[in-house]
């Protein structure tokens, strides 16, 4: 197992809007390791993008990291990301050089009035002011070539609108990989793309992981994507990691009712019409009007009166597999 590069410990993030406080992240912990892919999976509003943006310190002004820590364990020792100034010199140096992010929609993430090459050069030169324009462009061409863009010498001078969706995402990844970061955070990188293009992007990400040892944090809502790419999985619900474990732990021996229900509610390709779908009843609660006790309790088939008392403690099931549920033994053993 690779060494830890980013360690998130008991992270709390609150948003303050309209005199109300939304506890978006309620104490989440995980490690991102070299050459491994950690998938964060959950439905919309569960806090997965906030997690990614908290690591990059890209959260909106109205938010605050209320507790816990985010540490970057680089070659120069530990850097506490959560204590750095949001847009200070140190944070700006880390961003891009050591940790890079790609977003869901490459059209809005790229600037339409500058060529792709200009935007990659900007990144290269910001982190290495001595780099001349010519040399930077040569590096950009090489990066585009590495990401599998045909005719990179020509493409480097083109603008985002001249690229197709999949190519734009490759351009984004090229930009993210420009300074050879140790960690790549991918926030739903293929949600806006077609499946055949998605498969191309995944292959690219796999090769970054195996060939360069890049640590990847992949955020997704698609269990299929998790099954394809993940080494470790964190399942999030209403701001908590309700289950964490290796891919085998979570997909074959889920210990949290939410994970189990999620896996049973999606149709799986190749199982035909006979498969039984069990939708999760109700809908995700309003974050300002949270249920008492365990957040999943109103939708849970296993819930008992004790579940309404408090959020359950995190328990270790086996190895690295941990779960936030009082009834995890029952969930794992009842064979449903």
């Amino acid at each position: 197992m690779g060494e830890t590069i980013i360690r998130v410990k008991d992270l709390h993030v609150h948003f303050y809007t309209n005199q109300r406080c939304n506890r978006v992240l309620n104490g989440i912990s995980f490690d991102i390791r070299k050459g491994r892919t950690l998938c964060v999976v959950g439905e919309s509003g569960c806090g997965k993008s906030v997690t990614a943006n908290a690591i990059m310190r890209l959260l909106p002004e109205l938010s605050r990291i209320e507790g816990g820590s985010i540490s970057y364990l680089g070659p120069e020792g530990e850097v506490r990301i959560d204590t750095l100034e949001r847009n200070g010199r140190q944070m700006r140096k880390l961003r891009g050089e050591d940790i890079a992010i790609i977003f869901q929609d490459p059209m809005t993430a790229l600037n339409p009035v500058y060529s792709i090459g200009f935007q990659i050069n900007e990144m290269l030169q910001a982190h290495d002011p001595s780099l001349r324009k010519k040399a930077a462009t040569a590096r950009s061409v090489q990066l585009l070539r590495d990401m599998g863009i045909p005719l990179p010498e020509q493409r480097v001078h083109e603008y985002p609108h001249q690229f197709s969706g999949g190519m734009r995402q490759r351009g984004m990844i090229a930009m993210a990989m420009a300074c050879a970061p140790k960690v790549l955070i991918a926030d739903e990188p293929t949600t806006a793309l077609d499946v055949s293009i998605q498969a191309q992007i995944f292959e690219l990400m796999e090769s970054l992981k195996t060939e360069r040892g890049t640590a990847i944090l992949l955020i997704t809502h698609d269990m299929g994507v998790v099954a394809e790419l993940a080494d470790e999985v964190a399942v999030m619900y209403m701001g908590s990691i309700v289950e964490y474990g290796t891919i085998e732990d979570v997909l074959t021996r889920p210990a949290h009712p939410y994970t189990k229900a999620l896996l049973k509610s999606i149709p799986i390709l190749g199982r035909g019409k006979k498969q039984q779908l069990d939708p999760i009843r109700g809908s995700t609660p309003d974050s300002f009007d949270r249920p008492k006790g365990c957040q999943f309790q109103p939708r849970c088939d296993y819930a008992g009166p004790e579940c309404q008392l408090s959020m359950p403690e995190e328990t270790l099931v086996s190895g690295v597999h941990r779960v936030m549920c009082r009834k995890h033994r029952e969930v794992q053993s009842d064979g449903r």
């Binding site: 499946v195 498969a199 191309q200 995944f202 292959e203 698609d222 394809e228 799986i268």
Partner: peptide, 16 residues
């Protein structure tokens, strides 16, 4: 090309 939420079917990709 479709990712499948089933570990036994994790496969080698050969995308278009």
């Amino acid at each position: 090309a479709i990712p499948v939420a089933d570990l036994s079917r994790r496969k080698k990709r050969s995308p278009l």
